[in-house]
Amino acid sequence: MNIFRLIGDMSHLLAIVLLLLKMWKTRSCAGISGKSQILFALVFATRYLDLFTAFISAYNSTMKLFFISTSLVTVYLMYFKFRATYDANHDTFRLEFLVVPVGGLAFLVNHNFSPLEILWTFSIYLESVAILPQLFMMSKTGEAETITSHYLFALGSYRALYILNWVFRYYFEGFFDLIAVVAGCVQTILYCDFFYLYITKVLKGKKLSLPA
């Protein structure tokens, strides 16, 4: 565990808490893509199956359980409790366009052709593109609530911090996982446009509105 990973994990945690708080306080999931949230639940459910096969640390297990359970709660809140506020008309990204190619790629390019390993690889690839329905939705509506942009900034920062963690681990531990690194870089690149808007607008007190 190094400082980059710890801050990255905390940023990931903060993102999820921010999203849940936004929904709970406003009793609404307006502006949030339910499709991205379904993908995140799928990401956690397929990646953390090793909860049952390996024990790494109490920290590791606790975080995994937190991510799985909160992602399920988020999907429940969006599709059941606050369904009336869900903006389905703008959440029109086709999930099969992500899940099918990512599934195919996980079968072809993985560290080891075993069920758990393929599911882990699927999860890593899927996470890298899971935010696309959310970004697509924002580009359709042309704006985002400030709390939603804080959520996205924390969520995007987490993988960027993991890249620094991988650089650190490569030099000091000889650790290198090509699949995670490439997917992590793709994931971070997808956020760059948003990061730019966040820094130039939201941090200066303006609402995040996209150029037409």
């Binding site: 990973r5 994990d9 790494i56 590791n60 975080m63 080891n112 758990l116 390993e117 993991y162």
Partner: peptide, 10 residues
């Protein structure tokens, strides 16, 4: 081999 990689990252 069937050795499972230990994944310590989240």
């Amino acid at each position: 081999t069937f050795q499972i990689r230990l994944k310590d990252e989240l």
